[in-house]
Design a protein around this nucleic acid. Sequence first.
DNA 1: CTTACCATGTAAGGCGTTACATGATTCA
DNA 2: TGAATCATGTAACGCCTTACATGGTAAG
Lengths: 182, 182
Amino acid sequence: MANSKKMDCVILGLLSHKPMTGYEIKKQMDYSLRFFWGASYGSIYPTLNNLVKDGMIVSKDISENGRDKIQYTITEKGSKHLKKWLILPVEKDELRYETLLKLFFGCENGVQETLHHIEVFENKTKKELAFLKMMEAELEQIKDTEDAHIYYLLTVRFGVKTYEAYLSWCEEAKKCLEESKV
Amino acid sequence: MANSKKMDCVILGLLSHKPMTGYEIKKQMDYSLRFFWGASYGSIYPTLNNLVKDGMIVSKDISENGRDKIQYTITEKGSKHLKKWLILPVEKDELRYETLLKLFFGCENGVQETLHHIEVFENKTKKELAFLKMMEAELEQIKDTEDAHIYYLLTVRFGVKTYEAYLSWCEEAKKCLEESKV
DNA sequence: CTTACCATGTAAGGCGTTACATGATTCA
DNA sequence: TGAATCATGTAACGCCTTACATGGTAAG
């Protein structure tokens, strides 16, 4: 009760914007929440069923583009539940950065291998950053068309700022390790 | 085999620096890895027993300061295992940022509450940053006394850079939301 | 004398992924 | 016609946290 399951709240949050199918929820997560939250079908579909049981959402069988789907809509109860969760203090923000782990133990691995890990990380970050900047540009254009957009934009900018910091660190870290080789 | 349990490798990594007890491993993690990795006793102690069974580490009952402890030392096999894991490509770096989740759904929560979440996040980040800067200063002084220190320093600098980016974002985000109130 | 910290562990249970299973449709 | 994508789910399992359980020592 004190702090509901997060998966529940993420899905309620997404459904508070518009009715969606499980499949669409997954797509939406992979697109909008990709850099700070993830979920698999194996957790999404069971969660949806539980939310229906709890009266937080209702399901409706629809047919679109010649495909059978199950569309979920948030209920009044679900909306209240979401809002209650939103005002609660954040429990924890956590990272599990394997890259940093391998860096921390870099001494056992050698400079060359460690540099390689950094480069892989750098490339991944560059790609993600390009994606985020594209989203940022998109959102800036439609910023005023909907209240929610400003919040989306803020999360995207968070991503942009952190990824830029990562890249700046990569530069420094590479230099630092190159020098230590000499 | 392809990619061993991470908990195993973290512990092997820490033990590769020096022999430690389970309690010390936990302390060390909370201190050095705090901002990118975490673990509880409930996973550390069982992991240690498994590592002994697998011959990756050996245990030794010791008595120190009038206390009975079990000290673990990495074996040749454990060292090889660690090195094998270190050169493997990173599987995934993940964040689970509840703050960003609540921000993303900020529209359902209102500007005021969202600002509050940002301020809490900002304060927590400031404290962590101060801690990291202290570690940075410490490490810079002893940088050349041991090969491993440069790697510790790099992880700490990663933290410093990202936390500074977080704070810079907080400033912007607060302004942005304040303006939207008008 | 009691609080805080040192020190080690177990058990239950939560939470989520991976892999499997199925089948329709669209497009090259 | 075969691959990719749409669409929904289940089952097994892994991994970890929380809470519980125990007991010693140091310091106020």
